[in-house]
Write a protein that binds this DNA or RNA. Structure first.
Lengths: 133, 133
DNA sequence: TGGTTTATATAGCCTTGGCTATATATTCGG
DNA sequence: CCGAATATATAGCCAAGGCTATATAAACCA
């Protein structure tokens, strides 16, 4: 059963938005007392109804809980996913910087790249980055 | 005007499928006399009507021309896009291999990553890969 | 408190990119 | 040349992830 690379990419994509949301909620949650819809609207640069609707999906999928006054919380699953991605993000930024990409650009590109890095590749990158420090 | 990384990723994604198609048509075109719908169906692993419909969009967007007996041709714009992406793909595979990712995995991951690598990052990667040869 | 502002919800629309079922057209073997 | 097999087209459905316009709810301040 050879894996179809296009199918992999399509599958990755299905979880991209979810990953972005939980990662963002996770990061914002470290700065603020509460994360609200409006914070996501601002950070993501999308319209407010888009965030509301997406949060419903994430709730349905067990990644977040949205409480009465819109306090948004990650579930255990959501938090675990978020910390994985966050870690991967930081690693990719370091990796890109290590090969000469400016920090700002590395941050931007990592946001897209992080959704397509397999475990195997992540481990290789981690070794490489460690070896450079 | 700071660029919103999420907006960038969303924008990248809009062109991902188009990029995959033209890249594939480009690659298949080097092996075969003609590229047909059925070839794309097989390579992409999607249903045939999906390919037909997507080709219509690509034609509308000026990337391909679909001729009577379904001979699929890239337009100048399509071919140019395809060769850019193809080059980027090859580069990313080399890059990943250079840091210890096995070829097969590198190929799979590159398929997703290639859509999110900026010019700046691509240049940095190219320098890095050259420096290692 | 009451009015204004701000936040969230709801309705309704759109495109993309999937799918299945089925019709039509093309090609190929006998 | 005709019938079977293969290729493509068409119809119709779905979910995700966008959007605008507008209603409602909450918060804040005078």
């Amino acid at each position: 059963m050879r894996e179809n690379p296009y199918a992999r990419t399509r599958e990755d994509h299905r979880s991209e938005v979810a990953e972005d949301y939980v990662e963002l909620i996770y990061r914002l949650g470290r700065d603020r007392a509460e994360v609200r819809t409006a914070d996501l609207v601002e950070a993501l640069g999308v319209a407010q109804p888009t965030v509301t609707k997406t949060l419903e999906r994430l709730q349905r999928d067990g990644l977040v809980n949205v409480h009465p006054r819109r306090r948004i919380e990650l579930t255990a699953a959501g938090a675990s996913l978020a910390s994985d991605i966050s870690e991967r993000h930081v690693l990719i930024v370091k990796f890109l910087q290590a090969v000469g990409v400016p920090k700002e650009v590395a941050e931007l590109d990592a946001e897209g790249i992080e959704h397509h890095v397999s475990e195997t590749t992540q481990r290789a990158i981690a070794r490489f980055v460690r070896g450079r420090q």
